[in-house]
């Protein structure tokens, strides 16, 4: 089994668009999807949702407010999944609720820092 990083991107700020009820329904979809991965013992790390507050540091002491200044798609969160291959990880990714709201899932292999 290998581990893959799954990055979730969306082009808007999801919290801004939805009512609390809709938000709760979305959270439930995510929980069921992640619970399903965990039930297969393939969730290596339940990762994190990312807040919209942040900043970007550039060379020359340039600091830009927000993580999304120059990119349309903001990273909303990540998890790490366990799979035999990139293809199998992709099968898992196809169930991600972000795909229903115009977002996308990026899958990446991981290379150990001191490997």
């Amino acid at each position: 089994m290998k581990e893959f990083l799954m990055i979730f991107r969306n082009n808007a700020l999801p919290e801004a668009k939805y009512s609390p009820d809709e938000m709760q329904a979305i959270m439930k979809q995510w929980e069921n999807w992640m619970g399903g991965i965990a039930a297969q013992n393939k969730l290596a790390n339940s990762g994190s949702r990312l807040g919209t507050e942040g900043l970007t540091i550039k060379p020359g002491n340039v600091i830009i407010n927000g993580p999304y200044a120059e990119i349309k798609e903001i990273v909303g969160g990540y998890i790490i999944v366990r799979a035999e291959s990139l293809e199998e990880a992709a099968e898992i990714g196809k169930g991600c609720p972000i795909l229903n709201v115009g977002g996308n899932v990026e899958l990446r292999t991981q290379i150990p820092m001191n490997g």
Partner: peptide, 24 residues
């Protein structure tokens, strides 16, 4: 179901996975 989902994210066990499926 929600609690089983959370439990599986904390710790996997085959029994929990089966119980979650029943709740589903």
């Amino acid at each position: 179901l929600s609690l089983y989902n959370q439990l599986l994210m904390v710790e996997y066990s085959p029994i929990t996975a089966l119980n979650r499926t029943y709740a589903l």
